[in-house]
């Protein structure tokens, strides 16, 4: 359990996300079993795949980390070189708002603001900077994600792949301390997906923060993941390098 890849040992920042969460996320009724998230895990800097079939509690876990849902009990904290930022602690009554957590979260639906241009979407989280700084940061990130030509267009005027890139750019430009990706690439063809994954990996090499990437594609898990957390029925079934998935005879292998 919890094997550390060489890449992560080299990591310059030793950020890690400490999770201890219980959360009932579907009530038992009419004989159907209820689901309860009950896990204890550490997410290191770098890309960790959150793997599991639908209903395993992946999205609920991400919502709890981001502060969109309150866990029933437990603790969510970010540890960084001896310092700790506590996001949630049921014993001490801590629960800071999503806006204060500085967590990047890209939903499966992307949630780009439909009434704002690509530029305005990307600058949305940079309100504290002055205009010139905003423009500069926006130009940098759009270039990194190869969408510098989209600027004045609205989300419904660009392609699906471009929307995914803009959604990633909008989140990453704010310099999040943790990144949560809930199957953001599930609707794309393989070619487009691979290109975006390369961009994401390039960003990951530059800025080592804990990234939780939800997928139920073993191929994606093997290709992208430095670590894997395999979630089943709300608990951690296995945790380690992507190869551990082979032991569990996951369908697509």
């Amino acid at each position: 359990m919890n094997q550390v890849s060489p890449l992560q040992e080299k990591a310059r920042a030793a950020d890690r996300l400490l999770l201890r969460i219980t959360k009932q996320f579907a009530k038992a009724r009419n004989g159907a079993a209820g689901f309860c998230l009950d896990l204890n895990a550490t997410v290191l800097a770098g890309i960790t795949i959150l793997f599991g079939r639908s209903g395993a509690g992946k999205s609920t876990l991400l919502d709890c980390i981001a502060g969109l849902l309150p866990p029933d009990s437990g603790r969510v904290a970010l540890g960084s070189e001896g310092e700790e930022t506590v996001f949630f602690d049921s014993e001490k009554g801590v629960n800071i708002t999503p806006a204060q957590r500085r967590i990047g979260y890209v939903f499966q639906s992307l949630a780009l603001f439909p009434h704002l241009t690509v530029n305005a979407n990307v600058e949305y989280g940079l309100v504290r900077l002055d205009r010139e700084q905003r423009r500069q940061r926006r130009a940098e990130i759009l270039q990194l994600f190869h969408c510098d030509s989209l600027g004045e267009r609205k989300p419904d005027e660009i392609s699906g792949g471009e929307r995914q890139r803009v959604a990633l750019a909008r989140t990453l430009v704010t310099g999040p301390r943790i990144l949560l990706l809930d199957e953001p690439l599930s609707a794309l063809d393989v070619g487009t997906k691979l290109k975006i994954l390369e961009d994401l990996q390039a960003w990951n090499r530059r800025r080592r923060i804990p990234i939780l990437y939800v997928t139920h594609s073993p191929a994606e898990a093997m290709r992208l993941g430095e670590n894997v957390i395999y979630l089943e029925d709300g608990g951690v079934l296995a945790q380690g390098k992507p190869e551990i998935l082979r032991q569990y005879a996951v369908d697509e292998f």
Binding site: T97, P98, S109, A111, F113, Y124, G125
Partner: peptide, 27 residues
């Protein structure tokens, strides 16, 4: 208004007032 848009706004650091003025009201 899609609740995910409201959540996205909060996650990007926006206060409730800003979320209301920039996302909920225009939509």
């Amino acid at each position: 208004v899609d609740r995910k848009l409201i959540a996205a706004s909060a996650l990007l650091g926006a206060s409730r007032t800003r979320t209301f003025l920039r996302v909920v009201l225009p939509l």
